[in-house]
Every structure is written in structure tokens, then in C-alpha cells.
Design a binder for these strands. Structure first.
Lengths: 182, 182
DNA sequence: ACTGTAGGCCAACACTTGTTGACAATCAAC
DNA sequence: GTTGATTGTCAACAAGTGTTGGCCTACAGT
């Protein structure tokens, strides 16, 4: 027994996240994940049961809006943009979701849950308007996912070249309007 | 000789576009495409050489900006939004690109070509500012791809529920700013 | 020292994938 | 009617997939 089972489990999870983020669901094979983790493919099955379940474990995600507390109304847009950009950079989780959500129905469902279940309530709270929150959340999601797509997946050169401040300048007013326009 | 080769070729192409749009590159198998077209898989190979080449043929795309001619400057945003939405609805081509561009490098490259090669020049022409056109094109692309993603791929309920007019109301000012802000 | 248990590896399975070659069917030209 | 080319079919291939079971190997408790 070299390691405890929890240790190897998290090693596998880390490798899985990287592969799913880089290759998408189908091209991220259990064998390649196991190779990255320097572990036998059979161990992946033992600990996670199936590829589908491994993916489910790797795609756990929290937008962490708790970190976004007190913001004056007129700076909401800029702060949201900055928060999302940090989320994109922080870990592979959002990239996992975007890469896989497009071919894997489970991931798409997860995505809907996250943006409807985490973003919409936060917007409702910040704006004090629960009725319009789902629509606003959807618009914000569309814009921020579009930027993530262009910057991290498709790698459009102009978007890749922008600094965080550039992006805030471009996107801030857009998000501000989606959040607060009547 | 039941059909001419050009006929079967276009039957295969149509089936391929549908499958690629619905399933993405990896899950759209040659066998499933052939089955849809009611044709032997070997014919697909004979006419297109390989799956990669079949995909290249299926992913030909033209944003058709020729249809967008004379627009007063202040209505540019709304007209662009409408044009893009029509492109999304018209055929599967944009959905093919988005579904596949995320796992297939060739498709991602194609996507960059299209938006840098077709959208940016049109913007340069309409705004008379070639220097900033690539950045504006990238921002417009990000927003419109994000909406396509949310509406047609991930199917966020609020975005699916919106009418074309609703979308123009939300997106028009955004695109207008990306096109004309200094 | 012996045993039970839990981590790890190997080999194989059943299946699907893209791709290929040989063979049959159909039509046009002479 | 025979030839030649073009369209279609069939079976098989080599490689790669998720998944399974059996067999080692190392430790903990007695």
C-alpha cells in the first residue's frame, strides 16, 4: 500500500480535470487519464465506477459568488466581469464544462443548473428584482461564456491578446446593462 | 447506376451536416452518417477520402454579409443581431462549426478564418476604421457565439424562450457599442 | 509468524471506430 | 452483345474504447 485510497482518488481527479478540459469528453480516454496519473486504468474504474461517474466527479463546480459581496450598483458590471475572468483562469473547471457541455448531455444539464441555480439567485439578491433575474442571468452567461469560448477554446487572437483591464473595459458596460437595464 | 455520383455525394453531405451539428465531430460516426443517408459506409470513403475530408466539405461556410448592405450607422447593432440570428436558424452550418470547433482543431481554425476573414473586413468597411476592426469583430463574435451556444447548444430556458425581437432588444445595443464605441 | 484486507497491476473481454480491398450490379458506347 | 467504366455491396482488417476478473504485493492486527 503505497498511498491511501483518498490520495490516489484525488490524483486521478486532477488528471481527469486536465484531460477533460483539454480534449473534451470523448477524446479524454480513461487510458490517457490513467497514464497522466501514472496509474492503471483499472484503478480508475475501481474508484469511480465508470467514465460517466468520473466525469460527474470532475465537473463539480462552484461559481463562488460568496466572494462577491458588497458592490455599489454602478460598478456591478465591472466587478462581475472581473469575477468571471478570475474563475476562468483559476482552475480548469469552467473549461471542462464548456468543452464537454457541447457533446455531453450530462454536462449541458450541469451547466444549466449552475447558471440558473447559482448565478440567477445572486443577481436576484444584488438587484432586488427576482422576476427578471433568470433572463438577466442567461444574458450574462451567454456573454461570459462567449468570451471564454473565444479566449480559451477557439483562441481568437484579438481576444487572447487583451489584458484583463481591456476586457473589463469592453465587457463591463455590457454586463452592467444586462444586470440593471429596465 | 441508380444515381449519379454528384447526387449521392450531396445526399451524404446533407446527412453529414446534420450529424456533425447534432453530435459533434467524434460522436458523428461515418457509419451513422451513412445509415442516415441509407448508403454503405464505404461510399462515404470513396467520395470523400476520409472522415477529416468529409468534415472539411461539410463545414464550408459563408456568413453572407453581402445581404447586409445599406444600414444607417445608428441601426448597425440591431441589423447585425438580426442577420446573425437568421444565420443560426437558416442551416446547420454554424451549429456544425460550434459543436465541432470545440474538440476539433481543424474546425477551430476554420472558425478563426471565418470571423477574422469575413466579419472583420465587413466591419472595417461599414465603420471606415480598419485599425480597430479585428478587435470589434472578435467582440461581436464572442457575443453572438455566446448567444448561439446558450440558445441552440446548451438550451438555457430563458434564452430559448425569447423571440427574435426580444433578442434584438437585449443584444442590439451591445453589438452597436462593440461596432461603434471609440 | 500468520492471516486478512486493501491497493495495485496484468491480461483479456466485447464492442466500435475508420478504412480497405475484392466482388456484384448497372448503364453507355461501339 | 460485348466491353468498359461507374455505382453499389459485403466482409474483413487493425487499432482503440470502456470495462471486468484474477492475481500479485504490501501492510495492520493478532
Amino acid at each position: 500500500m503505497r498511498r491511501t485510497s483518498e490520495e490516489t482518488k484525488s490524483i486521478i481527479l486532477a488528471a481527469a480535470r486536465e484531460r477533460f478540459a483539454a480534449d473534451g469528453y470523448e477524446r479524454a480516454t480513461i487510458r490517457s487519464i490513467a497514464a497522466d496519473a501514472k496509474i492503471d486504468p483499472a484503478m480508475v474504474m475501481r474508484y469511480f465506477g465508470s467514465k460517466e461517474k468520473l466525469f460527474a466527479a470532475a465537473a463539480e463546480f462552484d461559481l463562488r459568488f460568496d466572494a462577491l459581496a458588497e458592490v455599489p450598483r454602478e460598478r456591478l458590471g465591472a466587478e462581475f466581469v472581473r469575477h468571471f475572468l478570475r474563475q476562468w483562469e483559476a482552475g480548469e473547471s469552467l473549461q471542462v464544462l464548456l468543452r464537454t457541455g457541447i457533446t455531453n448531455d450530462g454536462a449541458a444539464e450541469r451547466m444549466r443548473e449552475i447558471f440558473a441555480g447559482q448565478l440567477a439567485p445572486k443577481i436576484a439578491q444584488l438587484t432586488g428584482d427576482p422576476a427578471s433575474a433568470p433572463v438577466r442571468a442567461a444574458m450574462v452567461s451567454a456573454q461570459m461564456l462567449g468570451i471564454g469560448l473565444a479566449r480559451y477554446i477557439l483562441e481568437f487572437p484579438p481576444v487572447v491578446a487583451m489584458s484583463e483591464d481591456d476586457l473589463v473595459t469592453w465587457l463591463g458596460p455590457t454586463i452592467q446593462r444586462y444586470l440593471t437595464a429596465d
